[in-house]
Design a protein around this nucleic acid. Structure first.
Length: 420
RNA sequence: GGAGGAUUCGCCUAGUUGGCCUAGGGCGCACGAUUGGAAAUCGUGUUUCGGGAAACCGAUCAGGGGUUCAAAUCCCCUAUCCUCCGCCA
C-alpha cells in the first residue's frame, strides 16, 4: 500500500513507477483529489463532532427551558454529525479501495521493460557436458522410483504427484538442509498455517477476488497459500516490533498451492509446474533504510544453498514491468535444466519495502520511541522444483544420481540408484 | 455443533443504576531530582491512528451495528480465548 502522505509530497514518484510497470499513471491524480475530498469531509465531521460533545456536556448541567433548548440543538447536531460522518466514511472507503489496488513503487534501480527485459547479473558454475544423452527429471524420477505422476493424476488430477522412496528422502533432505542453514544464520524456523484469512492474503499483496492462482474455500472464507510468505508476512500484523531487535528473520516450511490456471500446455511433464509443492522460505522484517542490504543478504543465502547443491545457475534482476504487486525489486536465481537447455527459476527474492507492512500494519518503534512502518523481504531457500535440477544435473549414464556432498548427511544416501 | 464465562492504554488491573472516564491504579519503560557512584526514594512523562507549522481537535475500551442529546457502561451480530456437553480422528 502506498503512503498517502508521501504521495502528496511527491506524486511524481508514483507516476514514474506506474509508467515503469506499464500501468496507468492517472490514478495518481484520482488518488490526490479523492484524498483532498476525504480530508475536507473529515474536517467538517470533526468540528461538528467537537461542537456536539460540548453541547452534550452542557445538557447535563442545564435545567428547565435552557435544557430543552440545548436538547433541541443537540438533536440537530447529532443528525448533522451522522451525515458528515457517513460522508467522510464513504470517501474513506473509496480511497482505501483505490489505494489498495495500487502496486508498490518500483525501485528506480530495477531494469525497465517487461518479462524479457531482465538483466543477468551473474553466472555461477558451468552447465555440464554430458558424454551420454541426459534423461529428463521425470524419466530419472521414474527409474529411481522417486516420482509417481501417474498415480498423482489418478488420485488428485493433473499436476499432482507422489514423491516416494528416494524422491521423498531427497526432498526432506533438501528442505532440512535449507532449514539448518537458515537456523545457523539466525532465522527462527517456522512451520506455518497454509490456510489463511482473506485479510492475510490481501495484506501480503494478493487480490483474492481476481487472482486466478489462488485456491479458495468459500465455505469457510479461507484461502490456500501459494507460499509461506503469506502467513509469515501476516504473522506480525497489527503489531509494533522492537526496533532494536530488527531484523526479525523467519524461515518458513510449508506446502504451497497454486491453481496454475491459464498455464495449460506449459510444463505439463514432471514436477516443474505443479499444484502443490513444498518450500522453505526466508522472510525478513527490517528497517526501511536497511532493506536493500537485507535483500542482498537474502540473495547471498539463496546462492549458498544453490552452491551446496552444486547447481549451475544465473542471477537475474527482474524488470519493472514483470514485478508482482508487492515487490519494489526482485532477483531470481535460475538453475540450469539440461533436458530443456535453459535456465529455470529456482529461487526468487523480493524487497517489498513498506508495501506489505503498511497493509498489514506491521510497525517498529525506532530510537525516538515513534512507531514506523517496517520493510519486508522474502526469498526462497529450497523447493520441490530443485529436485528437477538436482536429478538432471547430477545424473549418470546408468540413470543413477549422485547426491551433492553437502546434501548427503541430510538425505542419508550418496547415490540414488534405479530401483528395478 | 450446543451451553456458559471472558476480552479495558506494552503487561496486570479499576470501572457495568449511561453524563467532570478528557479512562484511575500498579508493573515496566524514559527523563529528571537525590547520590562520590549505585540501590532505594521522590517527581514528570508514557495507547494508537488521522488532521494541523503549532496550540490543539477528532477517533480509539476485541470488531461491527443499534438505542440516546450523550455509550467502556444498555441492546444485537461477529471474532478470539477459557470451561462444560456432544461428535470425530
Amino acid at each position: 500500500m502506498i503512503d498517502l502522505r508521501t504521495l502528496r509530497e511527491d506524486p511524481d514518484r508514483l507516476r514514474a513507477s506506474q509508467r515503469a510497470r506499464g500501468e496507468d499513471d492517472t490514478v495518481v491524480d484520482t488518488l490526490l483529489s479523492l484524498d483532498e475530498r476525504r480530508r475536507s469531509a473529515l474536517g467538517s465531521f470533526e468540528s461538528l463532532r467537537a461542537e456536539q460533545k460540548n453541547v452534550g456536556k452542557s445538557v447535563s448541567k442545564a435545567s428547565g427551558d435552557e435544557r430543552q433548548a440545548l436538547l433541541d440543538r443537540a438533536k440537530d447536531l447529532a443528525a448533522q454529525v451522522k451525515a458528515a460522518e457517513a460522508e467522510a466514511e464513504q470517501l474513506g472507503a473509496e480511497l482505501e479501495a483505490m489505494t489498495m489496488a495500487v502496486p508498490n513503487i518500483v525501485d528506480p534501480a530495477a531494469p525497465v521493460g517487461g518479462e524479457d527485459d531482465y538483466v543477468v547479473l551473474d553466472h555461477v558454475g558451468t552447465p555440464r557436458e554430458f558424454d551420454f544423452t541426459p534423461r529428463d527429471h521425470l524419466e530419472l524420477g521414474e527409474l529411481l522410483g522417486a516420482i509417481d505422476m501417474e498415480r498423482g493424476a489418478k488420485v488428485s488430477g493433473s499436476r499432482f504427484f507422489f514423491l516416494r522412496g528416494a524422491g521423498a528422502r531427497l526432498q526432506l533432505g533438501l528442505l532440512n538442509m535449507a532449514m539448518q542453514q537458515a537456523v545457523e544464520a539466525g532465522f527462527v524456523p517456522m512451520i506455518t498455517p497454509v490456510l489463511v484469512k482473506p485479510e492475510s492474503m490481501q495484506g501480503t499483496g494478493f487480490t483474492i477476488a481476481h487472482d486466478s492462482e489462488i485456491y479458495r474455500l468459500p465455505e469457510d472464507d479461507l484461502y490456500l497459500v501459494g507460499t509461506s510468505e503469506v502467513p509469515l508476512a501476516a504473522y506480525h500484523a497489527d503489531e509494533i516490533l522492537d526496533g532494536s531487535q530488527l531484523p526479525y528473520r523467519y524461515a518458513g516450511w510449508s506446502s504451497c498451492f497454486r491453481r496454475e490456471a491459464g498455464s495449460y500446455g506449459k510444463d505439463t511433464r514432471g514436477i516443474i509446474r505443479v499444484h502443490q509443492f513444498d518450500k522453505v522460505e526466508m522472510f525478513s522484517y527490517c528497517k526501511p533504510e536497511d532493506s536493500a542490504e537485507e535483500h542482498q543478504r537474502l540473495l547471498a543465502w539463496e546462492k549458498q544453498m544453490l552452491d551446496k547443491c552444486e547447481l549451475p545457475y544465473r542471477v537475474i534482476d527482474t524488470a519493472a514491468g514483470d514485478l508482482g504487486m508487492s515487490a519494489a525489486r526482485k532477483f531470481d536465481c535460475e538453475g540450469w535444466i539440461p533436458s530443456q537447455g535453459r535456465y529455470r527459476e529456482l529461487t526468487s527474492t523480493s524487497n517489498c519495502t513498506e508495501f506489505q507492512a503498511r497493509r498489514l500494519k506491521v510497525r517498529f518503534r525506532d530510537e525516538d520511541g515513534k512507531p514506523r512502518v517496517v520493510s519486508t523481504l522474502n526469498g526462497t531457500l529450497a523447493t520441490t522444483r530443485w529436485i528437477v535440477a538436482i536429478l538432471e544435473n547430477h545424473q549418470q549414464a546408468d540413470g543413477s544420481v549422485v547426491v551433492p556432498k553437502a546434501l548427503r548427511p541430510f538425505v542419508g544416501l550418496d547415490v540414488l540408484e534405479p530401483v528395478k
